[in-house]
Design a protein around this nucleic acid. Structure first.
Lengths: 231, 231
DNA sequence: TGTACATCAGTGAACGCGCGTTCACTGATGTAC
DNA sequence: TGTACATCAGTGAACGCGCGTTCACTGATGTAC
């Protein structure tokens, strides 16, 4: 919608780019992070990659193809971040879930362009991306199952659904508000990274302890998981 | 980015529209809800309002002016929703905070176009809108102060900051995920409204009870608020 | 109640622009022999 | 090791399109007298 003067394109010495595919993806992520999906354009991405507007077609077909690939990388990356968090949590189920949550927010902060794309745009209708999404959020679900000791296949109780949606909501909301700059009121610039590192873990820990109390009290959640092996 | 054939414009009998200003705002919200900010165009809004592309300029100056007005309404509406929730909560500080949270999510579900606009786009640089945002989220902050019995002016303790960011995150994340269709895995179509009505209150209640426990334990939070008059 | 006229709200054609995509092309790379 | 040639990766001009905004205009409304 808004017009801007394009930044100077980077001239190139060789005819072939070398790694245009990766450059286009990087430029897309940067552009999305700067201007959001409404500021995205294939020509601008080509410009930033120092390449003619027709070049991207050789790698991604069309604009949708490029965005779909960035979205695919987003789900792949978030899945990896959640699984790494889970591993980092060690032998305590609550710690594993907490570290998944920290991984979720950390991924969003490191890849704002990718993260935003997962939750907006028409890519939501793409069935392969829907499957990727299910895979990603399935890691969180397994974390909650792990926490409550509910094996795959067994349906979750209402209180356990509530726990899953709650953990997801709290980390997602934190990430989205932080990226939208809504925490800037409380901490400007460099302080924000510190906010992430100090406030979030405590906040999550507290939230999760609430889940443990519920698990202990609820008749439909047979046992709070306590200490078990990491997956 | 994507081109679509425009829906048939609604023809009009009279030369003057009657209430074009309101019609443009409604059309903008609907368009934002359908296609997001990247699908917004002033011409499409004019088309849907059955009016020539030049007509909106008489009411809003330019495209930015129209979006800014919708954003202003968004902050005004969310402020009202939070305050109504607070009043609905009655004499219990925890209930007041919980009802604020339910109001937050309910507003988002009823006005997806407005809600999205508050957290994306370049309107974030507009200083009057920033003030409106501070006013809106200040209601949440007052709710937390109320809960912990911390008068305005007194700085919040770290644990109380954590509580504020946590409540905000959980309701915001819930709203954003629900609007992004990410809960569709668990509940399709009509069930989603039910999900809102049953899962969210329990989830919030549980989260808030965690905050109460912290308040009772932490030395920097002098007293859990218990029962006090609603503001 | 009627009339002159200022003001307001909308028209529709026109403008220049950036966009996505196409096309015939060309430079560079790699492979078969 | 050298050469012919297919394949690959990028060019740049061109296309048609929808966009936001402008402009001179006109129909409708409301107000002064």
């Amino acid at each position: 919608m808004v017009r801007r003067t394009p930044p100077a394109p980077a001239p190139r010495e060789t005819y072939h780019h070398g790694d245009l595919r990766a450059a286009l993806i990087d430029a897309t992520e940067a552009l999305l992070a700067e201007r959001g999906l409404e500021g995205f354009s294939l020509r601008e991405v080509a410009r930033r990659s120092g390449v003619s507007p027709a070049a991207p077609a050789h790698h991604f077909g069309d604009a949708h193809g490029l965005l779909a690939e960035v979205a695919r990388l987003a789900f792949e990356g978030l899945t990896a971040a959640l699984e790494a968090g889970n591993a980092r949590g060690g032998s305590d189920a609550l710690a594993r879930l907490r570290e998944q949550g920290i991984g979720y927010v950390d991924f969003a902060m490191r890849h704002p362009g990718r993260f935003g794309l997962m939750f907006q745009g028409e890519l939501r209708k793409d069935t392969t991306l829907l499957q990727a999404a299910n895979g990603t959020f399935g890691v969180l679900e397994r974390g909650v199952r792990d926490f409550y000791g509910v094996p795959a296949g067994t349906p979750l109780s209402p209180a356990q659904w509530q726990a899953l949606l709650g953990v997801w909501s709290v980390v997602h909301g934190y990430a989205h508000l932080a990226l939208a700059g809504r925490f800037d009121l409380f901490a400007a610039g460099g302080q924000r990274r510190q906010l992430l590192q100090t406030v979030l873990p405590g906040l999550l820990q507290q939230h999760l302890e609430g889940l443990r109390a519920v698990a202990a009290a609820a008749p439909d959640a047979p046992r709070p998981a306590g200490r078990r092996r990491a997956r």
